Amino acid sequence: MNQPTTEHGGPAPDKDVVALLMAQHGRIRDLFDEVEATSGDARRDAFGRLVHMLAVHETAEEEVVHPFAKRTAEGGESIVAERLEEERKAKEALASLEEMDPDDEKFQPALLELRMDVEQHARAEERYEFAQLRRLSDPSTLATLAKSVKVAEATAPTHPRPGVETGAKNAALGPFAAIKDRVKDAMRGSGSQGSSSG
């Protein structure tokens, strides 16, 4: 059975977890560009969408992708441990940025540092984790993982939770944090930022 593809010939993101996560990495880069290129309310809005995207994306990876990679990839335990440590540091930096005014002179340098860390993390995931997922998994498994990531994103917290980087911790704390975050977003009028998957 052939795997569904995009117009560019690659696997369709809704049918392939690697394609889905790679597309999200591209969207994250675009959001960093948007935050850097704007100011005032436009920057606040773009930064809010970036925070949302990073929070739900990382939670879904922690709940679905990393546990699977840990079990199936060669050297999975150490690969995932490194990614989780990177994610913890990024969540701390993101939470710190959330406390700042986006027009503060200290915001842009801190944002650029976070961007470098996030992009380095994404490259490491793509090289060490996603490449093995693609090689070791059949199309059916990749499709099931993509579906699982979408479900995890739909119920994920929309703000960073440093220290909550494992699937078990996300499962225990995530639903409560997600409700709290989504109420906070709605009160701020930012609840319509859209999901990370689209």
Score class of each variant (00 low, 15 high):
G40S: 04
P139Y: 00
L136G: 04
P162S: 02
K106I: 08
G26K: 06
D14E: 15
V35R: 00
E113V: 13
D117I: 01
N170P: 05
E85C: 09
R29N: 12
T59A: 13
V35L: 00
S140N: 13
A122C: 05
S195M: 12
K91T: 09
G76K: 04
H121R: 02
A143F: 07
M116G: 15
R44N: 10
E77P: 03
E92R: 07
F107D: 06
N2D: 14
F32H: 01
Y128Q: 15
S140Q: 15
E165S: 12
F130P: 07
V80E: 03
P175S: 03
L136E: 10
A146G: 10
H159L: 14
M187R: 15
G194M: 04
E92L: 11
A19V: 03
T166N: 01
V80G: 02
K150A: 15
A69H: 00
A46G: 00
G163L: 04
N2K: 15
S195T: 13
P139A: 05
A172I: 10
F107E: 00
T72P: 07
T141A: 10
P160T: 00
A60T: 00
T72W: 11
G48W: 06
F130A: 05
V118F: 06
G75Q: 02
R29P: 01
A124F: 09
G194S: 01
Q132C: 01
E58F: 10
A42W: 06
P13H: 04
V149L: 02
R188H: 11
A177T: 00
R43K: 07
M187Q: 14
K150V: 15
L114H: 01
V18M: 07
A131S: 14
T166L: 02
E129K: 11
V64L: 06
G167E: 05
